[in-house]
Write a protein that binds this DNA or RNA. Structure first.
Lengths: 184, 184
DNA sequence: TCATACTTTCAAATATTATTGAAACATTTA
DNA sequence: TAAATGTTTCAATAATATTTGAAAGTATGA
C-alpha cells in the first residue's frame, strides 16, 4: 500500500507538471549538470533563467527568482559576460542594467568551446611542448615511455585543438549535416 | 638586477628540466586539468602515472609515487576501472594486483566520451523530454519562450549525442582526416 | 583451519569552493 | 553638490568534495 502511494505521487509528479514546476526543474537540472562540468551551479542557473526569459532581466529579478545574494548574482553575471554568453542591455529611460542571454544553442556551444580551448587546451599544449624537451639522455624504459606518452598526447591534443577551431568557425546545419554524412 | 636574476632562474627552470621534474610537472598538469573537467585530481594523477609507466603498477607503488593514502588510491583506481581507462592485471605467482592504463589517446578519448554521455547527456535528454510535455495551455510569452528553449535544446543535445555515437565508433585516422577535409 | 597478505569500506578530518551581506564605490538626477 | 539609485568588492561563513587511516572484509596456501 505504501509503495502504491509513493508510485502514484511519483507519476503525478512527472505527468502533471505545470509551468512553474517545469521551470524549477529546468533551472535545477541545468545547475546540476554544470557542476559536473566544472562550471558553478549559480552561473549555470542564471544562464538557464535568462535562456527561458523572453525579456532581459535586471540583477534584482535574477536574485529574486533564484534566491541568491547580490554579490553572488553580480559575480556570476560578470563571469557569464566574459564567456560571451550574456550581454548587458541598457533600456532607454531606465537607469538599471538588464541582462540577456544568447539563445542560439550552436552559438552557445561555440562560445563555450572557444573559452575552454583558451583556458584548458592551450595551457596544456604549452606544458606538453616543454616536456618534450627534457634533457635526459637515459635510455631507461621509464624515460622512453614518458617520451612516447608526451609525444602521443601532444599530437592528439593538437589535433583536437584544430578540430575545435573548425567547429568554432562552422555553421550549425553545415556542421551536423557533415558529421551525419560521415556516419554512413 | 633583481629582475635579471629572476629571469635567469625562470629560464633555467624551463630549459633544464630533467626526467624527475618533467614527470612531476606532467602529473601535476594532468591533475589540474582534470579538476576543471569535474574529474578529481587524484584520479587523473593515477591515470597519468600509469600512462607514463612502462609496467603495470601495484596499489603500493601508486600510493608511494603520489603520496596518497591507501583508501584514496583504492577508490580512484576502482573509479578508473569503471571508466574502462585502467585494467587490473594479475601477474602469475604474485598475489598482489597490478594496474595498467589504456595508452592509446583516441581510445581514451572515446571511453571518456562514452562515460560522460551516459552520465550527463542521457539524463539531461530525459529531463528535457519530460519538460516538453508540461500541461499549461497558457499563451503567455513566458510559456512560449520556455517551450522554444526546451525544444531547441532538445534538438541540439540530441544531435550532439548522435555525434558522440559516431565518434565512439570511429577510428582515429579516419575521424581526424574526415574532419580536416571538412575544413577546406 | 589459521595465519598471512592483500583489498575495501567508511566515519572523521581536512581542503577546496561557493555564497552571503555589509561596506565601499560609481553614476545619475534634482 | 547631495541624495538617490545602482554596482562591485571582499572578508567571513557555509556548503561541498576529497582524503585519511584504522578497522573490517576476503582470498590464498600451508
Amino acid at each position: 500500500m505504501k509503495h502504491f502511494i509513493i508510485f502514484v505521487v511519483y507519476i503525478s509528479k512527472i505527468s502533471k507538471m505545470n509551468f512553474e514546476q517545469g521551470k524549477q526543474e529546468f533551472l535545477g537540472t541545468w545547475g546540476t549538470l554544470a557542476t559536473q562540468w566544472g562550471i558553478n551551479r549559480t552561473m549555470a542557473q542564471i544562464h538557464a533563467l535568462l535562456l527561458i526569459s523572453p525579456e532581459a532581466l535586471s540583477a534584482e529579478e535574477i536574485m529574486e527568482e533564484l534566491s541568491i545574494s547580490r554579490g553572488n548574482a553580480n559575480m556570476n553575471i560578470r563571469e557569464l559576460i566574459t564567456w560571451d554568453l550574456v550581454k548587458k542591455i541598457l533600456k532607454p529611460g531606465e537607469r538599471k542594467e538588464f541582462f540577456e542571454a544568447e539563445k542560439d544553442m550552436f552559438e552557445i556551444f561555440k562560445r563555450v568551446a572557444r573559452e575552454r580551448k583558451r583556458r584548458e587546451i592551450e595551457p596544456v599544449l604549452k606544458v606538453l611542448e616543454q616536456l618534450s624537451s627534457i634533457e635526459e639522455d637515459s635510455t631507461s624504459v621509464d624515460v622512453v615511455q614518458f617520451r612516447k606518452t608526451v609525444k602521443n598526447m601532444t599530437e592528439f591534443v593538437s589535433n583536437a585543438n584544430k578540430t575545435i577551431d573548425t567547429i568554432i568557425k562552422a555553421d550549425e546545419n553545415w556542421f551536423f549535416s557533415s558529421i551525419f554524412k560521415l556516419m554512413k
